[in-house]
Design a protein around this nucleic acid. Sequence first.
DNA 1: GTGGTCTAGACCACC
DNA 2: GTGGTCTAGACCACA
Lengths: 122, 122, 122, 122
Amino acid sequence: MEFNSDKAIYLQIADYICDQIQMKKWKSNEKIPSVRELAVILEVNPNTVMRAYDHLQQQEIIYTKRGMGYFVNEHSSAKILKERKDQFLKEELPAIFRRMQMLGINSNELLSQLDYFNKTNV
Amino acid sequence: MEFNSDKAIYLQIADYICDQIQMKKWKSNEKIPSVRELAVILEVNPNTVMRAYDHLQQQEIIYTKRGMGYFVNEHSSAKILKERKDQFLKEELPAIFRRMQMLGINSNELLSQLDYFNKTNV
Amino acid sequence: MEFNSDKAIYLQIADYICDQIQMKKWKSNEKIPSVRELAVILEVNPNTVMRAYDHLQQQEIIYTKRGMGYFVNEHSSAKILKERKDQFLKEELPAIFRRMQMLGINSNELLSQLDYFNKTNV
Amino acid sequence: MEFNSDKAIYLQIADYICDQIQMKKWKSNEKIPSVRELAVILEVNPNTVMRAYDHLQQQEIIYTKRGMGYFVNEHSSAKILKERKDQFLKEELPAIFRRMQMLGINSNELLSQLDYFNKTNV
DNA sequence: GTGGTCTAGACCACC
DNA sequence: GTGGTCTAGACCACA
């Protein structure tokens, strides 16, 4: 996995885990990789993975059983999808639209860009 | 002015200045507010404003005359517009489109959101 | 049985066993459930129950006969009661009183809470 | 400061900070010691202090201004007092009362212990 | 084996 | 100066 340098690694790991859960690759009440395991896979310090897990536990995405590992919470998949969609519609899109206004880009241009994107990303 | 905590304040100030220039509120070869003036207005440490000015000077958006202050470069407005548009089309839009794919949002939903935005931002 | 996450499970199991002995549900020289039995009942790993039994054996609350199981020691009930009372008076109560001081709770409020507790726990 | 070994140091530090805030030694919107400063004072690793601050920030007890330090949130003092009192009345006291029932301690004995405590802690 | 805590020391961006 | 992140390595209790 490659890490982007303008976002904390532990947050990128948390995002990666959310991706897996949202796509149901890791299901409800299923054990996720141990801290050390994932640290080896991602070539990262165990503390960094730990921090990502901690972060997700506070959001109740995952939970821990002592001595046994971390597990996916019930309904986390739907919860993640919902929160991401909310954030997208309420914050990211409006920001984009404001930007379009400022730059004088209209909806036609937007659609043609979308068409182009879809063609080149089959 | 409110600052977003996930972007450096001096960069947000630089953005703000670019906004003014792009919208031609501050015109070519016109003096812009002094570091101290702007610091008072934005309720920010003068060092932070200084850093924003520095940043913009390196990009040749503004220039300084010793003892007189900072001034807007010729053609800065067009330059800013062009750079912003480029970045928007090459980076921001594709990121948004990728996001839409992942969240299962199609072009119809995008358009309806845009309609809604336009109606509520007259 | 529900376990509190801020105390080791094996200690909570040991407490549970002490409860039974103190209340004389499990009497002197009587056999207590086997490790496996109790593990099934409490939905816990047998190792964890084993550890609780080990702990209690060191305190001479229970003893083992090879091949036969674990048994309650003579006088364990009284011993447990005495030790618990001691700890309660010397450590738990003073801690509570210190807490009350800090929170500005006086003896009247304490008594009214006790009244309320007694009424709702008949 | 002495640390108790049966609770994480960073939580004890967080408690200590809450004490200061509750007692209004550190007031609303006032700067609290920097991570490094407190680390030196408490003879602890800066990371450990950082973790305590992080913990309190998530509970909105304190907040951070980049490059400037940590500050006490508005109303944190009252909030801490309220939460501690709630926890005391709803969890700690009932546990104590249950314990009293089990140990055969009545309200008279409780009061005499409280008297004794008050005399010896003037 | 698992999580959890802690230290020591480093580097970075920001104010 | 400030916070924030990351690494390396250690130790502990728990299952």
